[in-house]
Design a protein around this nucleic acid. Sequence first.
DNA 1: TCTGGGGACTGGACCGGTTAATCACCGGGA
DNA 2: TCCCGGTGATTAACCGGTCCAGTCCCCAGA
Lengths: 345, 345
Amino acid sequence: MSAPAQRITIKEVAAAAGVSKGAVSIAFNHKPGLSEATRERIFTVARELGWAPNSSARSLSTRRPDTIGLALCRPARLLGLEPFYMDFISGIESVLAERSCSLLLRLVSSLDEEIALQETWWRERQVGGSILVDFHEDDPRIAPLTSLGIPAVAVGHPDLTGGIPSIWTDDAAAVAEAVRYLAALGHRRIARVGGPAGLGHSAIRERAFQDTLRALGLPPTTPVATGFAGEEGARATRSLLLRPERPTAIVYDNDIMAVAGLGVAAEMGVTVPDELSLLAWDDSQLCRLTHPTLSAMSHDVHGFGAEVARELFDVIAGRPVRARPVMTPSLTPRGSTASLHTAVS
Amino acid sequence: MSAPAQRITIKEVAAAAGVSKGAVSIAFNHKPGLSEATRERIFTVARELGWAPNSSARSLSTRRPDTIGLALCRPARLLGLEPFYMDFISGIESVLAERSCSLLLRLVSSLDEEIALQETWWRERQVGGSILVDFHEDDPRIAPLTSLGIPAVAVGHPDLTGGIPSIWTDDAAAVAEAVRYLAALGHRRIARVGGPAGLGHSAIRERAFQDTLRALGLPPTTPVATGFAGEEGARATRSLLLRPERPTAIVYDNDIMAVAGLGVAAEMGVTVPDELSLLAWDDSQLCRLTHPTLSAMSHDVHGFGAEVARELFDVIAGRPVRARPVMTPSLTPRGSTASLHTAVS
DNA sequence: TCTGGGGACTGGACCGGTTAATCACCGGGA
DNA sequence: TCCCGGTGATTAACCGGTCCAGTCCCCAGA
């Protein structure tokens, strides 16, 4: 009933179209040197036979795989909680799709594991390049991966990425904006719940945070280092609210922790935003679902991912790239921030 | 200073070890027919040269790529909000990693697009098989993909997956448990906020929901169909709470919508759990961050993903597989559900 | 008529592995 | 001494594409 089940290759297509396999190859790669008639005949036949070029064979010949790698290093359970990455990934995909490339995704649990993985990927030529995220200060990946020569784009401030072409958001400026906004609302005791201490952008934000406080003549706050998990955000918030000099505003390093903070405030009977203002980072839909809704420093994570992917293609193609920032996150005020004066009154 | 930069292949390794490339291949595939000494020599040399078999070449020869595909069909923006998938993916990964396979991930925006993608993946031999999720009633993917002959495992009840080997959770039983629990707490007006109407498991759950209500002699509730986004969950909740016969308990189809429901209740001044009990699905950390914390039907999503991946390997290897359920979600009571009697008192 | 050049297409080497077939060698039994 | 079987290795034919050096043909120009 059905066809001979014989796997169809370029040879069959060529035979059926009455040309050589070279011609089929030329047609499918849209290269010059074929008459329009032949070209069409080849495509017609290929469609009828349901043939598409075998990707392994292709990348074996061309020596460049049409796949790029992304390793996420977080405890797996936690990952589900970060809307950021899914959005980021979908941005990457949007660029890959238009070049019919694919994304190889892997969750790893340590940077060493990531290093090993990237080496394997590159050695085995599974990927043409990789996207690196979550840079730490003195990140251990930099040395081995640069010496390996794998094309890569880093997400993070150039200070952190050690010469790997990078794309980043100007977190320092964003933090400053956040703090100034809260100060303008009359807040003087402003605290911050940051991500893991080792993480580079946490450090950058913390520094900018303290600098801005100082510039505004506000009292510094002892930093609270946490992980990125919501529960840690909850713990940190609880400890902040129990301090004798309870802050009247808290800036979080992501949206999950802000949601957790909101929960803690409710649990402790601290009303938001009357007695406490909360500001989230990495605005996602989540911020619009809570009550009150969460004010956030929002940026176009999807577009960010797309930009990173485009940059990686440039790197792979050997085009010159320069590290560059994308749009600075900007403030989206919602229900969780309010003027301290109105609140107090 | 550095090596000749000449790409290292099996040939170099063979030469350096003083054997033929066949021997190297045998060693790396752990096949019999080599002395222990030779084997070790080969591995040593390979390590020194930093060589690993080229994956394209390998899968070209073996005719089986070591990659499996997963296409998620959701509006991209929404995806970030579903903790479920990240957890699910990490479960898949855990199995893939131990066989040094990779996951090819793609976000698509329609089922037709997914069909096209799967066809391409299979034709181009980019994947050895695929995992299919989010089955609809009369799912359009079934016919084209089965006729294509692509090895696949479906996530969903066998009634929906049309003969594709499937793994599923017994949602009907879980729904029944949820409803009976709420009924035992004294609730009589129980509503449900479901996922998209077309989605198969939504339909199954809705049916089980109404059946259980009937069995318990409780009044049926007009179903509220929504998407999966939090905002839709919010809208649905609002409309339920405005009904003249306001429900005293609501079961949600995922955790995001439940969070949104919690927000709406707060916004409308309905206290949870005193006046209203909420029950989430797909328990994730999110449920522990809100105030009150969310009771949920929880199941091991990570393990579920792992199970699915294992099954896919069986399918690919041609081992016989049977559709089978994994552990039924079970109830984890937290702060969002309470006895109606206590509440009323 | 001859030459030159360019467009259309072919042939075959090559990419880097896998694998079936083959072979050299060695010890043991008839 | 001859033959046999098994171990440890090699050889060469693939896998399914890409790509480059040619071949062939036709037409313009001298």
